[in-house]
Structures are given as structure tokens and as C-alpha cells.
């Protein structure tokens, strides 16, 4: 199949960047979207041009590295699917496809489609953990966890940290990512001692990193390849309210 691509090219953070048109004539519908870029890059390299830089690693939808906006949608049109798992059979022969990086002030463009998502790591560093230094753990069965809580914790913990929620959000907010971690740790008995501190610190870092505020538009949950549900944001708000009004700690 033939595809007309318009790809964002940007030499570095200082460059303004622009969309450049490419045509791929030998695409195959069994190819993944990243393999399409591989094919293009092979050709560009042989022509002495610089290949399109893009992040990827596992290519099986779990590492969260791949990150691009395809025709206005982070990870492209298929529901619950990362770019690396998106296959060309979901596109028409001759279709025009615009490919852009995730756009957010908190995700500065490094080059072409590669962005720096270190801000998400810093949100986690500011509280997205349970302090359990190695060696200090009690026997695993000392604390049973009701299955319902364990299941909800797991659903939230399935986040791959890709940042598609931020890319999709009209406010550039990372609330779905943040809510997912708050919910994961907050559902478990082990997560209780640090629960208040955690939410206050993580929200603070979230705001400081330059992410926008959530207005519950719901675009994030639609874009999320792991289908993290919106109620994690509700949980985030609730925990934050409790933490800041309970007198335990102020924001």
C-alpha cells in the first residue's frame, strides 16, 4: 500500500520545526506503524538524509517509550493500542497521515518525534512510592489485601507512563498519570502511612513541572492505551481534599 506521510522534523530543542512530506510506496498492511517508519528511515539513510528520530523499545505495548500523535490522536486511531502495536491495516491505501510529537511544555521536544518525559519521573520521585527499604519487609501474608482493592490497585498500576494522556489533554494536564499512581498505592494497606504526604507532594510537583490543571474533559482516558479509568482522577481529588483539609498537612 501507498501512504503519504507528513512528519514533524525538528533538529533540536531550539529549532522551530516543521512538517515535511514523505511518501512510502512499499508499505504492507501487516506492518506495524513503527515498522513503517523503519522502512522510511532505511530509505532516508541510504539517500544520505537524516532518519526520523522516534522513541521506541519493547514494541509490544508495555514499556511506554513509543510516543507520537497520529492524525491528531496520541498513539493513533485504534483504541487501547500503543503506536508500536498499531498496524497499517487500520489505514486506507493512499491515506495521508500527519505524525507529530507529544506536545506539552512539560515534554520539551528533543528531536523530531522524541520528547523528554523526565517530568513524569520527577512526579514519581516526589512521592510515588511506598518507603520499604530492602530487608525491612514483613512476611508477605502478614497483611491480606481484599481482592477488590488488589484488583483496583492493579488496574491503576497498569499505567505504562507513556504520557499520551498529557498529549491528548486540552489542558496539558498529567492528572490521569498522577491519579493512576495515587490510586494504585492508595488502595493498598501498605500505602496508607504516606498517603496524605504523597498526594500533596505529587500534585505540587505536577504543577511545578508545568502541566496544566484538569477540567475533567475526559480526553485522557480515551487516549490511554492501557484504558486507565477516569475515576482515578476522582480518587486523586478526594485524597488531596482529605490531605489538605484534615489538618494533617497543608498544601
Amino acid at each position: 500500500m501507498k501512504l503519504n506521510l507528513k512528519i514533524w522534523r525538528q533538529a533540536g530543542p531550539e529549532d522551530r520545526g516543521r512538517l515535511v512530506a514523505y511518501r512510502v510506496d512499499d508499505a504492507d498492511e501487516d506492518m506495524s506503524f513503527l515498522e513503517l517508519l523503519d522502512v522510511l528511515n532505511e530509505r532516508l539513510a541510504l539517500d544520505g538524509e537524516e532518519p526520523v528520530a522516534f522513541d521506541h523499545d519493547c514494541r509490544e505495548g508495555i514499556c511506554g517509550a513509543c510516543s507520537m500523535v497520529i492524525n491528531g490522536e496520541p498513539h493513533g486511531p485504534q483504541k487501547a493500542t500503543t503506536t508500536c502495536q498499531l498496524h497499517l491495516r487500520h489505514f486506507r491505501d493512499g491515506e495521508s497521515i500527519t505524525i507529530e510529537p507529544f506536545r506539552a511544555a512539560a515534554f520539551p521536544v528533543v528531536r523530531d518525534l522524541v520528547v523528554d518525559r523526565g517530568s513524569l519521573d520527577r512526579i514519581v520521585a516526589s512521592g510515588g512510592y511506598i518507603s520499604a527499604p530492602t530487608g525491612s519487609a514483613p512476611e508477605a501474608h502478614a497483611t491480606p489485601v481484599p481482592k477488590a482493592n488488589a484488583d483496583r490497585a492493579f488496574t491503576a498500576a497498569a499505567c505504562i507512563g507513556c504520557g499520551a494522556c498529557v498529549a491528548a489533554c486540552p489542558n496539558g494536564s498529567a492528572s490521569l498519570f498522577l491519579g493512576a499512581k495515587i490510586t494504585h498505592l492508595g488502595e493498598l494497606p501498605q500505602g496508607q502511612p504516606e498517603r496524605s504526604d504523597r498526594v500533596v507532594r505529587m500534585v505540587e510537583t505536577h504543577d511545578t513541572e508545568g502541566f496544566g490543571g484538569c477540567t475533567n474533559t475526559g480526553e485522557c482516558a480515551v487516549a490511554c492505551p492501557k484504558e486507565i479509568p477516569l475515576d482515578v482522577i476522582s480518587q486523586l481529588n478526594r485524597d488531596y481534599r482529605k490531605a489538605t483539609t484534615g489538618g494533617r498537612r497543608s498544601a
Binding site: E73, A105, A106, G212, T217, G218, E219
Partner: peptide
Amino acid sequence: RAHRARPVKYAHRQPVQGSYAAR
């Protein structure tokens, strides 16, 4: 803050996914 959080807009407009009321 939302404008500051996304200084560069998308070239290809995002289709509305959530709801029109929200947008």
C-alpha cells in the same frame, strides 16, 4: 495555565474524543 502547558499547538487538530459539552 492550559495555554502555557501547551505552547505549541498540534498541526492536525485533535478530533473531539471526550464530549462536545466538555470542549
